[in-house]
């Protein structure tokens, strides 16, 4: 495991945990798309089917369980917690996410490494992760602000690394690290592995990862604007 991948894993993990803790502590989930969170839960459950068949490392197993558990906990809070669920923007979160699920499954049936139960669901989870942010993007456009997304912003780990690596800025520093920062680490990790490992090949994951990162660029754009203007993050109405 290289440092980029570990940094990516940690920032991803912390962004999920921070979101969960923030929802639970403030008892509100306003601005968060339940559909995106449900898609992420589906992504983790279908990708980690190998929990039952392959053992890679204790780290790997524990991280998989934590990813599944924390994402399911977010979904549970938003759907069933008697206080939290009242603040859910049901009327704005109308993206038809079933089409995404169906489309990704169809693609996985066609494009996969091997036609086995596990491999098809693995490919499905990769494709779905790439587009799972779309309901959240639509909800943001409709609600017109991203204040609540600060729930997904991270304060400590990776913040310095991220600032140095990505922004390379010394004039004015961002105060929080955004939830999508882990994408940058994963891309560095793939570049590193491509050059250091002889047989590293995961075109499906890399291309999907790039598409996912491109979709997140929308967030990056607004984040950059607010950083440049040194202002609160606001989307155009």
């Amino acid at each position: 495991m290289n440092i980029f991948r570990f940094a990516g894993d940690m920032t991803h993990l912390i962004s999920i945990l921070v979101l969960l803790l923030k929802i639970y502590a403030t008892k509100t989930c306003s601005g968060i798309s339940l559909k995106t969170q449900e898609l992420y839960a589906l992504v983790f459950v279908t990708r980690y089917l190998d929990l039952f068949t392959d053992f890679i490392s204790v780290y790997n197993t524990v991280m998989k369980l934590v990813f599944i558990g924390s994402t399911l906990a977010i979904v549970w809070c938003m759907r069933l917690h008697r206080v939290v669920r009242r603040s859910y923007n049901r009327e704005l979160d109308t993206f038809r996410h079933y089409f995404l699920v169906a489309g990704c499954f169809a693609l996985a049936l066609v494009l996969h490494e091997k036609f086995t139960f596990q491999e098809v669901f693995w490919a499905f989870s990769i494709y779905l992760e790439a587009v799972a942010i779309l309901p959240q993007l639509v909800l943001l456009q409709r609600s017109g602000n991203v204040d609540n997304l600060t729930g997904q912003y991270i304060f400590f780990l990776g913040y310095l690394t991220f600032s140095v690596l990505i922004l390379l800025s010394c004039s004015s520093q961002p105060t929080e690290m955004p939830f999508w920062a882990y994408r940058a680490f994963y891309i560095l990790n793939w570049i590193y592995r491509y050059f250091t490992e002889q047989h590293f090949s995961r075109w499906i994951a890399c291309i999907s990862g790039l598409i996912q990162t491109a979709l997140y660029a929308d967030f990056f754009y607004y984040y950059f604007l607010s950083w440049k203007n040194n202002a609160t993050l606001k989307l155009p109405a």
């Binding site: 991803h12 990790n189 590293f200």
Partner: peptide, 10 residues
């Protein structure tokens, strides 16, 4: 095999 294909990742 897991190392080679990258399926050791999360």
């Amino acid at each position: 095999a897991h190392q080679d294909t990258g399926k050791d990742e999360l």
